[in-house]
Amino acid sequence: MSDLLSIEGLRTVFRTGNGEVAAVDGVSLSVAKGKTLGIVGESGCGKSMLSLSVMRLVPQPGRIAAGRVMFDGRDLLTLPPAGMRDIRGNRIAMIFQEPMTSLNPVFTVGDQITEAMRAHDRAASNAELKARAIAALGRVRIPAPERRFDEYPHQMSGGMRQRVMIAMALACEPDLLIADEPTTALDVTVQAQILDLLRDLQQQTGMAIILITHDLGVVAEMADEVAVMYAGRVVERASGTAIFDDPQHPYTLGLLGSIPKLEETHDRLLAIEGAVPAPFALPQGCRFHPRCVFATAACERESPPLRDLGRGHLAACLRAPLEAAVAAEAH
């Protein structure tokens, strides 16, 4: 299956008082039509900046310094602004993290959905746009969509606002949906409903999804392929099954080990010591080595490349493939 989106060596940098630093550093990823790519990692690892780079929405003083973003055979980074506007929101849509801050509180949800559609279909009448917006609200299972069309964001719950954001993103029937933390701050019941909704809509439309999250449970439920990011780089990439059954990077092992298990009892949860380093204070060698319990002297000197370990499983670790005993120790 050919890739709908292919990111090649993408590097996004910011100008700071400490010089130019990379928030996204040489990332290469791809997703095919009808498939879901999960991107996971702690806060500050570059997940959201990667999505903003694909959409060409990098805030100042940031810029895309290198790489290609191929979408349906065209490099998005070479398109003029008008050409990118035609694609953004139309063929590639994005659900942002916080629905309450992404929705304008002084406009009704209907006004905001129709505005998104009008940007790509100026010939449509107001009545036609309203009918399509109400249909979009119904498609994301919002009850009484005709009434909700005239309501304001503050009149809705967090789960309902998230559904409005999904309706807005899907209003123009995009080929690719980028969902940045779509279940953050939602309780587990609403989270399950949102994930079921995204999965059903994907089956109906055949769109590709890039799912950005720190929640490995969400990834396990949704993703066909998973990319684990750390300090601006992809450190492991494999099928969803392989990531959970045979993780090959110590960082991935740490993330999996921190998930509580019902069948096990511990006085405290396992945790990865330390924090993601600031982009202007990256360690030499492997960027994860100061937090890695398996690090050796070589890890402090050498920056490991992302290597194919077989069957499309890639990992950036000098010790990969990890021995079974090492993996067991991490768990």
Rank of each mutant, 00 (worst) to 15 (best):
F149S: 05
L201D: 13
R132I: 00
L198N: 07
G138I: 00
A167G: 07
M165H: 04
V188P: 02
R161H: 00
A136W: 12
Q202M: 09
K130A: 11
Q204S: 14
A179V: 00
I113A: 11
D180V: 10
I194E: 08
E146P: 13
P174M: 08
E146T: 09
I134N: 06
T114V: 11
E173G: 01
A208I: 14
R132E: 13
R139E: 15
I212D: 01
E181Y: 00
V109M: 07
L137D: 05
Q193S: 08
E151L: 11
L216C: 01
M117G: 04
V219I: 15
D200W: 00
Q203G: 07
D187I: 11
A171Q: 04
Q193L: 00
A135L: 14
A127S: 15
I134G: 05
I113N: 13
G206N: 05
D180Y: 04
Q162V: 10
T184G: 06
G217C: 11
R139T: 00
G110Q: 09
S157K: 11
Y152K: 14
A119P: 06
Y152I: 13
L129D: 11
V219G: 01
T183K: 03
L137N: 01
I166E: 14
E128V: 14
T184Q: 11
Q112E: 09
A133Y: 05
L216W: 07
A167S: 04
K130I: 00
M165G: 07
V190R: 12
I166P: 00
M207I: 07
E115M: 05
I142K: 02
A119H: 01
D196G: 15
S157M: 08
R118L: 15
L195D: 09
L195A: 04
V190A: 09
I212T: 02
P174Q: 11
P174A: 12
A144I: 00
A116C: 12
C172L: 13
V218N: 07
H214N: 08
A144Y: 03
Q193Y: 06
